[in-house]
Protein backbone atom coordinates (compact mmCIF):
# COMPACT_ATOMS: atom_id res chain seq x y z
CA UNK A 1 0.00 0.00 0.00
CA UNK A 2 1.45 3.32 -1.00
CA UNK A 3 1.68 5.96 1.64
CA UNK A 4 1.04 9.42 0.30
CA UNK A 5 2.65 12.08 2.38
CA UNK A 6 1.56 15.67 2.40
CA UNK A 7 4.61 16.55 0.34
CA UNK A 8 3.46 14.03 -2.21
CA UNK A 9 0.03 15.51 -2.46
CA UNK A 10 1.36 19.01 -2.98
CA UNK A 11 3.68 17.63 -5.59
CA UNK A 12 0.80 15.94 -7.37
CA UNK A 13 -1.28 19.08 -7.39
CA UNK A 14 1.51 21.19 -8.83
CA UNK A 15 2.37 18.49 -11.32
CA UNK A 16 -1.17 18.17 -12.59
CA UNK A 17 -1.59 21.92 -12.71
CA UNK A 18 1.53 22.42 -14.77
CA UNK A 19 0.59 19.62 -17.10
CA UNK A 20 -2.86 21.06 -17.61
CA UNK A 21 -1.34 24.39 -18.56
CA UNK A 22 0.96 22.60 -20.98
CA UNK A 23 -2.03 20.75 -22.36
CA UNK A 24 -4.01 23.90 -23.00
CA UNK A 25 -1.11 25.80 -24.51
CA UNK A 26 -0.24 22.95 -26.82
CA UNK A 27 -3.79 22.12 -27.73
CA UNK A 28 -4.76 25.63 -28.80
CA UNK A 29 -2.90 25.69 -32.10
CA UNK A 30 -4.07 22.16 -32.82
CA UNK A 31 -7.67 23.19 -32.39
CA UNK A 32 -6.86 26.20 -34.55
CA UNK A 33 -5.69 23.97 -37.35
CA UNK A 34 -8.78 21.81 -37.21
CA UNK A 35 -11.02 24.86 -37.24
CA UNK A 36 -9.03 26.50 -40.01
CA UNK A 37 -9.45 23.45 -42.16
CA UNK A 38 -13.19 23.99 -42.25
CA UNK A 39 -13.26 27.78 -42.36
CA UNK A 40 -13.24 30.33 -45.10
CA UNK A 41 -9.62 31.37 -45.82
CA UNK A 42 -10.43 35.08 -45.63
CA UNK A 43 -11.70 34.65 -42.11
CA UNK A 44 -8.53 32.79 -41.24
CA UNK A 45 -6.14 35.28 -42.85
CA UNK A 46 -7.86 38.29 -41.40
CA UNK A 47 -7.68 36.86 -37.92
CA UNK A 48 -11.40 36.63 -37.50
CA UNK A 49 -11.14 32.93 -37.01
CA UNK A 50 -9.18 32.33 -33.89
CA UNK A 51 -10.68 29.31 -32.16
CA UNK A 52 -13.89 27.96 -33.58
CA UNK A 53 -14.65 27.70 -37.27
CA UNK A 54 -15.98 30.77 -39.03
CA UNK A 55 -17.97 30.51 -42.25
CA UNK A 56 -17.99 26.77 -42.09
CA UNK A 57 -17.09 25.11 -45.36
CA UNK A 58 -16.05 21.62 -46.31
CA UNK A 59 -14.72 22.78 -49.65
CA UNK A 60 -11.13 22.36 -48.58
CA UNK A 61 -11.62 18.69 -47.85
CA UNK A 62 -13.69 18.14 -50.95
CA UNK A 63 -10.93 19.47 -53.11
CA UNK A 64 -8.32 17.53 -51.25
CA UNK A 65 -10.08 14.27 -51.77
CA UNK A 66 -10.94 15.08 -55.34
CA UNK A 67 -7.23 15.11 -56.01
CA UNK A 68 -6.43 11.58 -57.12
CA UNK A 69 -2.75 12.02 -56.52
CA UNK A 70 -3.28 12.35 -52.77
CA UNK A 71 -4.59 8.82 -52.54
CA UNK A 72 -1.73 7.53 -54.63
CA UNK A 73 0.66 9.32 -52.32
CA UNK A 74 -1.01 7.79 -49.29
CA UNK A 75 -0.59 4.28 -50.64
CA UNK A 76 3.04 4.91 -51.51
CA UNK A 77 3.78 6.38 -48.12
CA UNK A 78 2.27 3.42 -46.32
CA UNK A 79 4.44 1.13 -48.39
CA UNK A 80 7.61 3.12 -47.76
CA UNK A 81 6.89 3.46 -44.05
CA UNK A 82 6.12 -0.16 -43.34
CA UNK A 83 8.93 -1.71 -45.33
CA UNK A 84 11.34 1.07 -44.67
CA UNK A 85 10.89 0.81 -40.92
CA UNK A 86 11.28 -2.94 -40.95
CA UNK A 87 14.53 -2.54 -42.82
CA UNK A 88 15.65 0.17 -40.45
CA UNK A 89 15.04 -1.96 -37.39
CA UNK A 90 16.78 -4.94 -38.92
CA UNK A 91 19.85 -2.89 -39.69
CA UNK A 92 19.98 -0.65 -36.63
CA UNK A 93 19.13 -2.85 -33.67
CA UNK A 94 21.78 -5.51 -34.17
CA UNK A 95 24.43 -2.94 -35.00
CA UNK A 96 23.63 -0.82 -31.97
CA UNK A 97 23.72 -3.86 -29.75
CA UNK A 98 27.13 -4.87 -31.02
CA UNK A 99 28.33 -1.33 -30.50
CA UNK A 100 27.17 -1.42 -26.90
CA UNK A 101 29.19 -4.46 -26.04
CA UNK A 102 32.41 -3.51 -24.33
CA UNK A 103 34.03 -6.72 -25.48
CA UNK A 104 33.41 -5.96 -29.13
CA UNK A 105 36.74 -5.35 -30.77
CA UNK A 106 36.62 -2.45 -33.18
CA UNK A 107 33.91 -0.73 -31.19
CA UNK A 108 35.71 2.57 -30.96
CA UNK A 109 36.49 2.67 -34.66
CA UNK A 110 32.93 1.92 -35.56
CA UNK A 111 31.68 4.59 -33.20
CA UNK A 112 33.93 7.16 -34.75
CA UNK A 113 33.01 6.09 -38.26
CA UNK A 114 29.35 6.54 -37.45
CA UNK A 115 29.75 9.91 -35.78
CA UNK A 116 32.02 11.24 -38.51
CA UNK A 117 29.30 10.89 -41.11
CA UNK A 118 27.07 13.12 -39.07
CA UNK A 119 29.38 15.96 -39.97
CA UNK A 120 31.20 15.27 -43.14
CA UNK A 121 29.72 14.11 -46.31
CA UNK A 122 30.20 14.56 -50.00
CA UNK A 123 26.93 16.31 -50.39
CA UNK A 124 24.03 15.89 -52.71
CA UNK A 125 25.82 15.70 -56.03
CA UNK A 126 28.26 12.83 -55.43
CA UNK A 127 25.58 10.86 -53.60
CA UNK A 128 23.28 11.37 -56.55
CA UNK A 129 25.97 10.09 -58.88
CA UNK A 130 26.54 7.02 -56.73
CA UNK A 131 22.85 6.26 -56.76
CA UNK A 132 22.77 6.75 -60.49
CA UNK A 133 25.68 4.40 -60.99
CA UNK A 134 23.96 1.78 -58.90
CA UNK A 135 21.05 2.06 -61.24
CA UNK A 136 18.73 3.00 -58.43
CA UNK A 137 17.44 6.28 -59.76
CA UNK A 138 13.69 6.56 -59.93
CA UNK A 139 13.11 3.26 -58.10
CA UNK A 140 11.07 2.62 -55.01
CA UNK A 141 13.95 0.73 -53.48
CA UNK A 142 16.17 3.74 -53.17
CA UNK A 143 13.66 5.38 -50.86
CA UNK A 144 13.77 2.36 -48.60
CA UNK A 145 17.52 2.05 -48.64
CA UNK A 146 18.54 5.64 -48.20
CA UNK A 147 18.46 6.20 -44.52
CA UNK A 148 18.69 2.47 -43.84
CA UNK A 149 19.96 3.67 -40.57
CA UNK A 150 20.83 6.96 -39.01
CA UNK A 151 23.80 7.85 -36.86
CA UNK A 152 21.62 9.60 -34.38
CA UNK A 153 19.34 6.62 -33.88
CA UNK A 154 22.25 4.21 -33.73
CA UNK A 155 23.83 6.19 -30.95
CA UNK A 156 20.64 6.57 -28.97
CA UNK A 157 19.91 2.86 -29.28
CA UNK A 158 23.44 1.99 -28.34
CA UNK A 159 23.15 4.15 -25.25
CA UNK A 160 19.96 2.43 -24.30
CA UNK A 161 21.54 -0.99 -24.61
CA UNK A 162 24.60 0.10 -22.66
CA UNK A 163 22.65 1.42 -19.75
CA UNK A 164 19.89 -1.08 -19.43
CA UNK A 165 21.34 -4.41 -20.42
CA UNK A 166 23.76 -5.30 -17.63
CA UNK A 167 26.92 -7.26 -18.22
CA UNK A 168 25.84 -9.92 -15.77
CA UNK A 169 23.12 -10.91 -18.14
CA UNK A 170 25.58 -11.62 -20.90
CA UNK A 171 27.94 -13.46 -18.56
CA UNK A 172 25.24 -15.72 -17.20
CA UNK A 173 24.01 -16.38 -20.71
CA UNK A 174 27.43 -17.41 -21.95
CA UNK A 175 27.85 -19.61 -18.95
CA UNK A 176 24.65 -21.31 -20.06
CA UNK A 177 26.18 -21.88 -23.49
CA UNK A 178 24.38 -19.14 -25.46
CA UNK A 179 25.70 -17.77 -28.71
CA UNK A 180 25.53 -14.04 -29.41
CA UNK A 181 22.71 -14.56 -31.80
CA UNK A 182 20.54 -16.37 -29.28
CA UNK A 183 21.49 -13.93 -26.59
CA UNK A 184 20.39 -11.08 -28.80
CA UNK A 185 17.19 -12.53 -30.16
CA UNK A 186 15.92 -14.49 -27.18
CA UNK A 187 17.04 -12.38 -24.26
CA UNK A 188 18.04 -8.83 -25.19
CA UNK A 189 15.28 -8.02 -27.66
CA UNK A 190 12.38 -9.04 -25.47
CA UNK A 191 13.80 -6.83 -22.74
CA UNK A 192 14.15 -3.91 -25.10
CA UNK A 193 10.58 -3.41 -26.14
CA UNK A 194 10.76 0.22 -25.09
CA UNK A 195 13.64 1.09 -27.37
CA UNK A 196 12.25 -0.98 -30.24
CA UNK A 197 9.01 0.92 -29.92
CA UNK A 198 10.84 4.24 -29.84
CA UNK A 199 12.97 3.38 -32.86
CA UNK A 200 9.98 2.08 -34.78
CA UNK A 201 8.36 5.39 -34.04
CA UNK A 202 11.39 7.51 -34.99
CA UNK A 203 12.08 5.67 -38.20
CA UNK A 204 8.44 5.34 -39.04
CA UNK A 205 7.83 9.03 -38.64
CA UNK A 206 10.91 9.87 -40.68
CA UNK A 207 9.58 7.78 -43.53
CA UNK A 208 6.12 9.17 -43.16
CA UNK A 209 7.30 12.78 -43.36
CA UNK A 210 9.94 12.20 -46.00
CA UNK A 211 9.80 14.21 -49.16
CA UNK A 212 13.26 15.48 -49.96
CA UNK A 213 14.79 12.21 -51.13
CA UNK A 214 11.74 11.50 -53.22
CA UNK A 215 11.99 14.90 -54.86
CA UNK A 216 15.64 14.40 -55.65
CA UNK A 217 15.78 10.80 -56.80
CA UNK A 218 12.35 10.07 -58.23
CA UNK A 219 10.98 11.47 -61.44
CA UNK A 220 7.82 9.42 -61.96
CA UNK A 221 4.90 10.99 -60.20
CA UNK A 222 3.33 7.61 -59.53
CA UNK A 223 6.05 6.77 -57.06
CA UNK A 224 5.85 9.93 -55.01
CA UNK A 225 4.96 9.69 -51.34
CA UNK A 226 2.17 11.74 -49.86
CA UNK A 227 4.30 14.58 -48.56
CA UNK A 228 5.54 15.51 -52.00
CA UNK A 229 2.02 16.14 -53.23
CA UNK A 230 1.18 18.02 -50.06
CA UNK A 231 4.23 20.18 -50.38
CA UNK A 232 3.28 21.16 -53.88
CA UNK A 233 0.06 22.53 -52.48
CA UNK A 234 1.71 24.22 -49.53
CA UNK A 235 4.54 25.76 -51.51
CA UNK A 236 2.17 26.96 -54.17
CA UNK A 237 0.55 29.64 -52.08
CA UNK A 238 3.92 30.72 -50.74
CA UNK A 239 5.35 31.09 -54.20
CA UNK A 240 2.40 32.94 -55.60
CA UNK A 241 3.69 36.53 -55.44
CA UNK A 242 6.80 35.54 -57.35
CA UNK A 243 4.83 33.72 -60.02
CA UNK A 244 2.41 36.57 -60.52
CA UNK A 245 5.18 38.82 -61.65
CA UNK A 246 5.51 37.34 -65.07
CA UNK A 247 2.20 36.10 -66.33
CA UNK A 248 -0.61 37.50 -68.38
CA UNK A 249 -3.64 38.81 -66.57
CA UNK A 250 -5.81 35.78 -67.12
CA UNK A 251 -3.20 33.38 -65.89
CA UNK A 252 -2.89 35.62 -62.85
CA UNK A 253 -6.55 35.14 -62.14
CA UNK A 254 -6.16 31.42 -62.23
CA UNK A 255 -3.02 31.36 -60.13
CA UNK A 256 -4.65 33.55 -57.52
CA UNK A 257 -7.65 31.30 -57.46
CA UNK A 258 -5.45 28.24 -57.11
CA UNK A 259 -3.57 29.87 -54.27
CA UNK A 260 -6.84 30.48 -52.52
CA UNK A 261 -7.69 26.84 -52.92
CA UNK A 262 -4.26 25.93 -51.65
CA UNK A 263 -4.98 28.06 -48.61
CA UNK A 264 -8.20 26.23 -48.00
CA UNK A 265 -6.66 22.88 -48.47
CA UNK A 266 -3.46 23.27 -46.54
CA UNK A 267 -4.83 22.87 -43.06
CA UNK A 268 -6.91 19.90 -44.07
CA UNK A 269 -3.87 18.45 -45.78
CA UNK A 270 -1.88 18.62 -42.57
CA UNK A 271 -4.58 16.83 -40.66
CA UNK A 272 -5.06 14.15 -43.26
CA UNK A 273 -1.38 13.45 -43.48
CA UNK A 274 -0.52 13.45 -39.80
CA UNK A 275 -3.54 11.76 -38.29
CA UNK A 276 -2.29 8.20 -38.79
CA UNK A 277 1.02 8.89 -37.10
CA UNK A 278 -0.57 10.76 -34.25
CA UNK A 279 -2.86 7.84 -33.65
CA UNK A 280 0.06 5.42 -33.81
CA UNK A 281 1.70 6.90 -30.77
CA UNK A 282 -0.81 5.90 -28.11
CA UNK A 283 -0.78 2.44 -29.58
CA UNK A 284 2.97 2.18 -29.20
CA UNK A 285 2.90 3.66 -25.76
CA UNK A 286 2.00 0.44 -24.04
CA UNK A 287 5.46 -0.80 -24.86
CA UNK A 288 6.95 1.88 -22.73
CA UNK A 289 5.59 0.04 -19.75
CA UNK A 290 7.29 0.10 -16.42
CA UNK A 291 8.98 -2.82 -14.91
CA UNK A 292 10.19 -4.32 -18.14
CA UNK A 293 13.39 -5.42 -16.52
CA UNK A 294 11.70 -7.02 -13.60
CA UNK A 295 12.77 -10.57 -13.00
CA UNK A 296 15.50 -10.64 -15.57
CA UNK A 297 18.35 -10.74 -13.15
CA UNK A 298 16.70 -12.20 -10.11
CA UNK A 299 17.36 -15.75 -9.41
Amino acid sequence: MKYESRADRIFDVINYLLLIIVLVLTAYPLIYIVSASVSDPTAVNSGRMWLWPVSFTLEGYQRLFKNGEIWLGYANTIFYTVFGTLLNLAVTLPCAYAMSRKDFVGRKTLNFMVVFTMFFGGGLIPTYIVVKNLGLLDTRIILLVLGATSSYNLIVTRTFFSSSIPDELRESAFVDGCTNWILFTRIVLPLSKAIIAVMALFFGVTHWNAYFNALVYISTREKYPLQVFLREILIFSEMLPAMLASEDSLVIEELTRQARIAEMVKYGAIIVSSLPVIIAYPLLQRYFVKGVMLGAIKG
Binding site: L23, T26, L30, L234, I270, V277
Partner: peptide, 13 residues
Protein backbone atom coordinates in the same frame (compact mmCIF):
# COMPACT_ATOMS: atom_id res chain seq x y z
CA UNK B 1 -0.52 12.60 -27.56
CA UNK B 2 -1.38 16.28 -27.58
CA UNK B 3 2.17 17.42 -26.91
CA UNK B 4 3.60 15.06 -29.47
CA UNK B 5 1.20 16.06 -32.25
CA UNK B 6 2.69 19.48 -33.12
CA UNK B 7 5.84 17.81 -34.37
CA UNK B 8 3.88 16.71 -37.44
CA UNK B 9 2.72 20.09 -38.52
CA UNK B 10 4.76 20.95 -41.55
CA UNK B 11 7.01 23.95 -41.22
CA UNK B 12 5.20 25.94 -43.86
CA UNK B 13 1.92 25.75 -42.01
Amino acid sequence: TVTYAPHFISMVV
